[in-house]
Design a binder for these strands. Structure first.
Length: 97
DNA sequence: TCGGTGACGAGAA
DNA sequence: ATTCTCGCCACCG
């Protein structure tokens, strides 16, 4: 439900799901997304506004794809790979947040 | 049951 | 601002 051009953090999603301490489980869930499932996984960033790294089969890290997808929705990243959370985060009025 | 790991997060130094 | 530590949940050997 995260609209294009906006983002949520792992912690916020965990909070809305009922447990603000389960942020790691959110990351685990994203990792387990089946191919073909419609789900805006790229709109989830960490609490600092950066793209969380994951290992590829090669062993190196890949954040480029997620960044490209977000930039294509109008989100701007600093040269250090950080985006302004305050500016792009949604559902600010949700009770759990 | 235990211990290690990970697309996390908050607080301490 | 950076780095480290610890607590969290779920999964796996």
């Amino acid at each position: 439900m995260i609209p294009p051009g906006t983002v949520m953090t792992y912690g916020q999603i965990a909070a809305m799901a009922g447990n603000p301490l389960a942020s790691r489980a959110v990351g685990y869930a994203l990792r387990a997304i089946p191919a073909g499932m419609e789900l805006p996984w790229h709109r989830v960033v960490n609490s600092k506004g950066e793209i969380s790294s994951r290992r590829t089969v090669q062993g190196d890290y890949d954040r480029s794809l997620q960044r490209v997808l977000l930039e294509s929705e109008g989100i701007v990243f600093s040269d250090t790979g950080i985006m302004d959370l305050k500016k792009y985060q949604v559902f600010k009025e949700h009770p759990a947040l």
